[in-house]
Design a protein around this nucleic acid. Structure first.
Length: 260
DNA sequence: ATGGTTGTTGCACAA
């Protein structure tokens, strides 16, 4: 069994102790982090190594930053989009092969507002993500693309659709980009496991949104068909959103049977 | 109530 997790930690510097304790507790085999908000020099690779993990980090400093931490091997790392695709100016994607699975940890741009240039950047980023996959791997392989997509795939993934109408995360254009990734050959594993449940992975820090159950499901684990058919169980670890100094995102955990 | 919180080579801006 291979346990794959995605977690937007909203600063690994601020969350380091919590993340290390959580790893010891939950024992992920592959942990994809987003928003480390640090340079590669500051990344605490030795802390992960002490727990038995290899790691690759693609950081830039104050914002963004993605990593993959693995105890089932870590080979052929690629920071940024694959060669031949216009490189992103931000550190938002890193890819590596872990336990035979081609894994990408992604931090999709937020978009800010639909009339903001950052929203156009978000759409183009998602187009480039699909081009990256076509270049880097193949949908017939074991592929996982996971991270903070900043897209709620459907209305069931939103606590109050009317409140988010005409705002980012729910627009048809964003959801079409996500559908294009599914057309390429990926499946939203957790939604497949729980077709009708209201499941959230992010809650605004403000207004007691977590306590009030007002969240979004924007952290996704997308798997190719061969991964999906071995995906046995998944959950959002809401406990990681509780207690002192949590990230505003909770980890999404997926357990995948190993190949026979 | 168009509010609120958290993070950062922070004192404005991103989320």
């Amino acid at each position: 069994m291979t346990r794959v997790v995605t977690w937007n930690v909203n600063s690994l510097k601020a969350r380091r102790e919590r993340v290390l304790e959580w790893i010891a507790d939950v024992q992920p085999d592959v942990l994809c982090l987003q928003e480390t908000k640090m340079t590669d020099d500051a990344f605490p690779a030795l802390d992960f190594e002490a727990l038995g993990y290899e790691s690759v980090h693609f950081g830039q400093g104050r914002w963004n930053g993605v990593a993959i931490i693995s105890r089932v091997g870590l080979a052929d790392p690629v920071a940024n989009f694959a060669p031949g695709i216009e490189p992103d100016t931000d550190a938002r994607i890193v890819t590596a092969t872990c336990g035979g699975i081609r894994v990408s940890s992604v931090y999709v741009p937020n978009g800010r507002a639909i009339d903001d240039p950052h929203y156009t950047y978000k759409l183009s980023w998602l187009d480039r993500l699909r081009a990256h996959l076509a270049s880097d791997t193949d949908p017939s392989a074991d592929v996982i693309v996971t991270g903070d997509f900043n897209i709620a795939p459907a209305d069931i993934d939103v606590y109050d659709v009317s409140q988010l109408a005409m705002s980012t995360h729910v627009t048809p254009a964003e959801r079409e980009r996500l559908a294009a990734l599914e057309d390429w050959g990926l499946v939203d594993i957790m939604r497949r496991h729980y077709p009708h449940d209201r499941i959230y992975s992010w809650w605004d820090y403000r207004s007691g949104d977590f306590h009030m159950g007002r969240g979004l499901r924007i952290d996704l684990v997308l798997g190719s068909a061969s991964v999906m058919e071995r995906a046995r169980w998944s959950t959002v670890d809401r406990n990681a959103r509780k207690g002192p100094s949590p990230s505003d995102h909770a980890p999404v955990v997926v357990d995948i049977d190993d190949r026979a």
